[in-house]
């Protein structure tokens, strides 16, 4: 069967293939670690925003506490590595499972709240977790956890000073989140979740199970975010609550999707490609004296996009979708 939906989905898949091919060669001409580092972070936030988008964009449940899943994922994988020598590839799976379960646990009470109240509840839960981890001495508390270097290897995802391998790991992570979002978009789940986002009462009248839909979206979104935390921990080699389980990070996870286009497939990548370099540039030029200026920048950027392109930056690339189909 061929129709506008199947054609669009095929086009998306082809675009993604071309894009991944381009991204594979993108870092090769750039040898300085600074640029490569920037690319890695851009891909990381693109993937995290893509994960956030599965719950926030597709299902319409705005979470402002996603660093909870990122941080817990990072701790699970890192502690398994530090305490038991479990390679991060398996640690990632554990991180995804724990973060996904945690998202269900948060969702169980919080999805009974509607609209803004859900968003507020996610902030509160994440802040509680932040304080808990800050004071939990068995796992490092406020001083955090160093990831010991076990020698350069793909198994342990540790590469002395090389940035390129991390770039490809992040690219793989981004591809995973993109494929998950793409697959969901075309499945029964995706249709149900979007129906929940658009109109709960109409969705229910068509047999859509609203609460289980939100829970499933949260589990997948949280689980993917947890994988990101596990990879990030190996990349930076040190984790503490302030760097991986904080309020500002929660905002930064959601922001690329909001900037690029909530609920779209390409919004997160586009948003991250604009936001993350901008953030790095501002901190480079302004140094420590400019702390807080980056937040002002985000705010200004969001205002500009909200006024000028409410559908997000991704709408710049779309042909005018008007009603005259025939």
């Amino acid at each position: 069967m061929q129709n506008a939906i199947t054609l669009r989905r095929r086009r998306e898949l082809i675009t993604a293939g071309v894009l991944v091919a381009l991204l594979i060669v993108l870092p090769l001409p750039f040898h300085d670690p600074y640029t490569r580092n920037l690319m890695i972070l851009t891909l990381l936030y693109a993937a995290l925003a893509q994960s956030w988008n599965i719950l926030g964009g597709t299902c319409g449940q705005i979470s402002l506490g996603h660093s909870l899943y990122f941080g817990v994922g990072a701790y699970v994988s890192t502690l398994l590595f530090v305490w038991h020598g479990v390679p991060p590839w398996f640690g990632m799976l554990a991180a995804a499972a724990v973060a996904g379960l945690l998202a269900l646990l948060v969702g169980w009470p919080c999805f009974r709240l509607s609209g803004h109240y859900y968003a507020i509840a996610t902030v509160v839960v994440q802040e509680i977790a932040y304080l808990l981890f800050l004071n939990w001495d068995d796992i490092g508390g406020a001083s955090g956890v160093y990831v010991p270097f076990h020698g350069q290897s793909w198994l342990n995802l540790q590469f002395r000073t090389a940035k390129l391998p991390y770039f490809y790991v992040m690219l793989g992570f981004f591809a995973l989140t993109w494929i998950a979002a793409w697959w969901i978009e075309g499945s029964r789940w995706g249709f149900s979740w979007r129906a929940v986002k658009d109109d709960v009462i109409a969705a229910r009248s068509l047999g859509v199970r609203v609460f289980p839909s939100k829970m499933a979206a949260a589990a997948i979104s949280g689980g993917l975010t947890g994988i990101g935390g596990a990879i990030f921990a190996q990349f930076v080699g040190y984790i503490d609550p302030d760097s991986i389980l904080s309020g500002p990070l929660s905002i930064l996870i959601a922001l690329p999707a909001v900037l690029g286009g909530v609920g779209t497939l390409w919004g997160p990548l586009l948003g991250a490609a604009v936001l993350i370099p901008l953030r790095e540039l501002s901190s480079t030029f302004l140094g420590s004296s400019g702390s807080g200026v980056d937040l002002m920048l985000y705010g200004a950027l969001i205002m500009v996009v909200a006024l000028w392109r409410p559908q997000g930056l991704v709408s710049l690339f779309q042909r005018g979708r008007n009603g005259s189909a025939s």
Binding site: A4, I5, A195, D198
Partner: peptide
Amino acid sequence: RSFDSMSVRENVMV
């Protein structure tokens, strides 16, 4: 109560 982020076809598919 239409699902306004979707096309007509997608609405009916729900």
